[in-house]
Design a binder for these strands. Structure first.
Length: 583
RNA sequence: GCUGGAAUAGCGCAGUCGGUAGCGCAACUGAUUCGUAAUCAGUAGGUCGAGGGUUCGAGUCCCUUUUCCAGCUCCA
């Protein structure tokens, strides 16, 4: 494909390359806008970029727009493609650009021009349609062979909730019909992995009207949660952490000292006890500080790694809740590390390695972001710079690629975030490492240094899972509910062929339970095919079929979730096989 | 929180023009005793999310509200 760049030059790029794909989708967005203007000339256009899997365009319609309008627009878009319009690129100086947009009565474009620094403003024109746009674009509209409008939603003008809400139309496009069909199919498949659907089907968790955003963990979910916690405790003991638990609810004065009462008030649940204000903790750090403060501390204790599985509550806005991924109450696998300035680099690196070990263990791919000072920050510029550099240097030392998120840090310090992907490619922050100079200062924390003088410790907040709830959500989608043996809530189901073999089946089940395996039996009066079907739908890793032959020879027929029938074997042979897989 | 959509049996869904709620699976009972993804028959199950209104009559129309879904904003 030929691509027309902003500077007027032409480049060759295929759809497989980001440049080509973005130009392709971006051009489709222009075709959408052109069709909309033809059909509903009073509509005002805002912006229409390409995104990961397609494109969108924000419009200000004069009527109630809905998906029912899609057919009409898609028909008009097809016409525009067929007309094979050339995309002409040119620039206008600020005055003429302004004039052109005023003539066309495009108030959003005018606002954009006012904020643009350039003197020469880039435009693309296709047929009668003129768009102020930095491009790049494909050369002719006929390149867009396959496209589809997907959904419509509200979006604030310039992403600011104080601004007017516009109507965003999402769509996608491909050079071939088959590619579009394949993409739509993939979206359907992804929906089947949705942790909210699977979490319900597999009996892992529930969200009820009585507790919006407060998940109920069902027996199988609790098994999963406890396995993750066991794994986590083992790792942290190995890494030299000590574990504490601090109260869920603490007095207002503590939150005033920590700064949360001023900076996090809207998100905290509060109550009154004996006339005093209390807040349910939205994070565990202030409680952790109190533990640090209980005794005089020495540099000899450093680095002091104190972990806590903290049950935290945050009053998240109703519209932001999302299954287990975004909840109002969750368990953070928190830890606070107190140290000397010299220990910063090594400690951060240690935590990064730990997080990498855990994510790799589950087979996750992740990306790292460094978030810098936000607007509502507390603390001096110098502290922020030192803290930010500390994180940056550690990442550079480890040669870990990362993107910088300007202004996205916590109010008390910068952070490194680890993001994991869900089934449809949305990413969720899980692990985070935050360097904090503020809290030790606010609590006037101290330690006695080698020189015998008092010093202020440096503090790291860090989580590996992030929230265990969110991590479980990611796990469900990552494995599509087919958990590996070691975390499967039910590892084995024994299926007697008829009730004549129930006694033998029960014996097998008990023997495996004695070995610490999570094992159930399906003793219903059903045919074996039906029991297998049920167990497969429950996504249980191993099924043991027990009938006449097995009872006579004291064996089991093993069926594996993915591979099917593995043949007959004795229980000890089965155990060897399971141990080799990891249980 | 904002914009738009949705809510009917445990789950997945149908319900026409406003006329007294149905299907499949699951559950339960009985028959069946079976070899790697659904045996057959029967039974029971619903203040149609909640509250108000219009009407002779509301699952259906109107208002309020709760929750969920998509996106925005915000965030682990």
């Amino acid at each position: 494909m030929k691509i027309k760049m902003k500077d007027g030059s032409m480049r060759e790029a295929s759809f497989e390359e980001e440049l080509g794909r973005n130009a392709f989708r971006h051009t489709t967005a222009h075709i959408l806008a052109q069709a909309v203007k033809r059909l509903y000339p009073d509509t005002k256009c805002a912006i229409g970029p390409s995104i990961a899997d397609g494109f969108y365009y924000d419009f200000d319609f004069t009527f109630r727009f809905s998906e029912e309008n899609f057919a009409e627009i898609e028909a008009e878009m097809k016409k525009i493609v067929k007309e094979n319009l050339q995309l002409r690129h040119f620039t206008l100086d600020r005055n003429r650009a302004m004039q052109a947009m005023e003539e066309r009565e495009e108030p959003y474009k005018i606002e954009l021009i006012q904020d643009l620094p350039e003197e020469e403003i880039s435009f693309y024109q296709q047929g009668e349609y003129l768009e102020m746009c930095a491009g790049p674009h494909v050369a002719y509209t006929s390149a867009i062979k396959a496209f589809k409008l997907l959904s419509v939603a509200g979006a604030y003008w310039r992403g600011d909730e104080k601004n007017k809400m516009l109507t965003r139309v999402y769509g996608t496009s491909f050079p071939k019909e088959e590619m579009l069909a394949e993409h739509l199919n993939r979206l359907e498949e992804a929906k089947k992995r949705d942790h909210r659907k699977l979490g319900k089907e597999l009996g892992i968790f529930a969200l009820l009207d009585e507790g919006p955003g407060f998940p109920f963990f069902l027996p199988k979910g609790m098994v999963l949660k406890n396995i993750l916690i066991d794994y986590w405790r083992k790792l942290h003991a190995r890494e030299g952490y000590v574990e504490i638990a601090t109260p869920v609810m603490l007095e207002r004065k503590l939150w005033e000292t920590s700064g949360h009462w001023d900076h996090y008030r809207d998100n905290m649940y509060t109550t009154v006890i004996d006339g005093a204000d209390f807040a349910i903790k939205p994070m565990s750090c202030p409680g952790g500080m109190l533990v640090y403060q209980m005794e005089p501390r020495s540099y000899r204790e450093f680095p002091m790694r104190i972990s806590e599985l903290g049950l935290i509550h945050r009053n998240e806005k109703s519209g932001t809740l999302h299954g287990l991924m975004r909840v109002r109450c969750c368990t953070q696998d928190d830890a606070h590390i107190f140290m000397t300035p010299e220990q910063i680099q090594d400690e951060i690196k240690g935590v990064v390695r730990l997080i990498d070990e855990v994510y790799s263990h589950f087979g996750f791919r992740y990306h790292v972001e460094l978030s810098t000072r936000p607007e509502n920050a507390i603390g001096s510029d110098a502290d922020w710079e030192m803290a930010t550099n500390g994180l940056r240097n550690a990442l550079d030392d480890l040669k870990l690629p990362y993107v910088v998120n300007e202004g996205d840090g916590a109010f008390y310090g910068p952070k490194i975030d680890f993001h994991l992907e869900d089934s449809i490619g949305r990413t969720w922050q899980c692990g985070t490492i935050q360097l904090d100079f503020q809290l030790p200062q606010r609590f006037e924390a101290e330690y006695i240094g080698e020189d015998g003088n008092k010093h202020r410790p440096i503090m790291i907040h860090r989580v590996v899972f992030g929230s265990i709830e969110r991590f479980i959500g990611i796990l469900i989608e990552h494995f599509a509910g087919k958990f590996p043996l070691w975390i499967a809530p039910v590892q084995i189901k024994v299926l007697p062929i008829s009730d004549k073999y129930i006694d033998h089946a029960k014996g097998i089940m008990r023997a495996l339970q004695q070995e610490g395996l999570r094992c159930e039996m399906d003793g219903r009066d059903e045919k074996i095919g039906y029991k297998i079907r049920t167990a497969q739908l429950e996504k249980i890793p191993y099924m043991l079929i027990v009938g006449e032959k097995e009872t006579e020879t004291d064996s089991v027929s093993v069926r594996k979730r993915e591979e099917g029938d593995l043949g007959r074997m004795g229980v000890s042979q089965l155990l060897d096989m399971l141990r080799a897989e990891g249980i």
